[in-house]
């Protein structure tokens, strides 16, 4: 079903991520639906489940999520060079735009028009995150343990306002403990 990795050229990876990078407005949260339409549906390089996995992992690693996701997929497709091609592709349009606007940015974007567009773009980002989250939850919340971990993490981030770093750490430790107990009791395999 998916294309063999050695048939993919570095330039193709760069080009696909360049296309994604150009339309990646709204702070990068819309990358999952874009990856789905470009890499899964058009190019058939990977399946959606694998991309979801990489995206989940990218959320938890330090750094910019868009960069992490591009690197993971590029690396999977064509090793380190693939990762670098994907990274350059996804970041270069933002880079060029910011550089060419840097000196005039405060003049061009007078605050009122930016706040108006900002508000409406974020409204569509709400819808897109909702759809992304629906897919992620379907893949990640598969039993009582994962439901518990999800709700606990959400509570710790929103109510207790712990930093994401600590929340992820707690989730890993709890997940490991629960998995080990399950294994000892011989309940079921993950």
């Amino acid at each position: 079903m998916t294309t063999k990795n050695n048939e993919i050229k570095l330039f193709d990876i760069f080009y696909v991520f360049l296309k994604i990078g150009i339309v990646l407005v709204g702070g990068g949260y819309i990358i999952l639906p874009l990856l789905n339409s470009e890499i899964v549906e058009k190019k058939k390089w990977m399946d959606y489940d694998e991309i979801l996995d990489k995206y989940c992992l990218s959320q938890c690693l330090p750094g910019i999520i868009v960069a992490n996701t591009a690197l993971f997929i590029g690396y999977k497709l064509k090793g380190i060079l693939g990762a670098i091609s994907a990274l350059i592709g996804v970041t270069i349009s933002a880079f060029i735009i910011i550089i060419s606007l840097a000196n005039t940015i405060s003049l061009l974007f007078n605050n009122k028009i930016v706040t108006n567009i900002f508000e409406y773009v974020n409204l569509s980002v709400i819808v897109l995150i909702l759809l992304t989250l629906k897919d992620m939850l379907k893949k990640s919340i598969i039993d009582k343990t994962t439901t518990f971990l999800f709700l606990l993490c959400l509570y710790l981030i929103i109510k207790i306002k712990l930093s994401p770093f600590i929340v992820i750490f707690i989730s890993i430790i709890l997940g490991l403990i629960i998995s080990i107990i399950k294994k000892q009791m011989g309940v079921n395999k993950i």
């Binding site: 949260y29 996995d53 995206y55 989940c56 992992l57 990218s58 959320q59 938890c60 995150i129 992304t132 989250l133 992620m136 939850l137 893949k139 990640s140 919340i141 343990t145 994962t146 439901t147 971990l149 999800f150 993490c153 959400l154 981030i157 929103i158 994401p164 929340v167 992820i168 989730s171 890993i172 709890l174 997940g175 490991l176 629960i178 998995s179 080990i180 993950i190």
Partner: peptide
């Protein structure tokens, strides 16, 4: 496997927040 299993709900929670 256990780490991945626990990381995914945390990733979902981050996006949900």
């Amino acid at each position: 496997k256990s780490i991945l299993y626990a990381l995914k709900p945390a990733g979902c929670a981050l996006l949900a927040s």
